[in-house]
Design a protein around this nucleic acid. Structure first.
Lengths: 145, 145
DNA sequence: ATAATTAAAGATATTTTTATCTTTAATTAT
DNA sequence: ATAATTAAAGATAAAAATATCTTTAATTAT
């Protein structure tokens, strides 16, 4: 469904939301280990998510690292997709037709739009915090050591 | 949602289902034009869909081209995804976690699986013919000249 | 002030996907 | 038989996605 970049972005964001706070920051190594993601690539992705502190915040230097504010944690999951420029997955025609629209629907349009709408609703109503706090012992997420 | 290869595959298949028959075959040019797809790349994709005549059939030489049998037209749309090896999109974890499962769900698992199930049902119950015969004048599909 | 720590930024490499081009093989019509 | 037509197969190219490495800049603790 999503690119690896976006999968890593979602996983890192959920992990940071779960484990960090303004006075408890996480290093790139801890994040990439916990989310089973390549560290350097994850670092690149976090650079994007950190732009303007919209979703993730960071500080450099000793005791620095990545963290999220409570305000950011309450953002919808969709905001991660938006920053990763992959929100188009939620909007595009299944058959990839640019001209597909309500007026000129492709043959999958009417059925697919019902499903797409549920995806949009899911990503827009669930907050990052919702997901982070859903994590229980034994869940696939995360490498809890 | 799907790769371009799969989008082209779906579009070509639907078009061939709609326009061809055992005694009316379509050339690669006609297909790629109608479906807004790059001709050479589409040819490569049709080679795959034609293997073993599972979905699409072809004959070479004058008056040759691509066509589908009525039997093939009644296959579920999912069979195209299977041949394109993109059925995994319908099965994978949204967050890309291999270990995500019913027993060890990721934080999106329970909500996402409901949507995924609808996608699977859609692609398994709709036949290629269903889509082809859905096409009406003015629909985005196809370049009807 | 200095050294240590950490993320940011930039450069490079690898892999995968997408796309095109050329040659070959099959079929048909003449 | 021969030439024309068409898809199959193979080779190559270009672009995008994924991944890593190196250098720089900011921050903190000493």
């Amino acid at each position: 469904m999503f690119s690896k970049s976006t999968e890593y972005a979602l996983r890192a964001t959920i992990y940071i939301a779960q484990k960090s706070s303004e006075n408890c920051k996480l290093g790139i190594k801890a994040i990439s280990d916990a989310t089973d993601s390549p560290p350097h690539f994850t670092a690149k992705i976090l650079q994007v998510l950190t732009r303007n502190n919209k979703i993730i915040s960071s500080v450099r230097g000793p005791n620095g690292g990545f963290y999220m504010t409570e305000e950011a944690k309450s953002l919808p999951v969709r905001s991660v997709l938006d920053v990763m420029e992959e929100d188009s997955v939620l909007e595009r025609c299944v058959l990839g037709l640019n001209k597909c629209s309500e007026a000129k629907p492709c043959p999958m349009h009417s059925q697919y739009k019902l499903i797409k709408q549920q995806l949009i609703t899911l990503f827009e109503t669930k907050t990052i915090m919702d997901l982070a706090s859903d994590i229980r012992d034994g869940e696939a997420f995360i490498n809890n050591d």
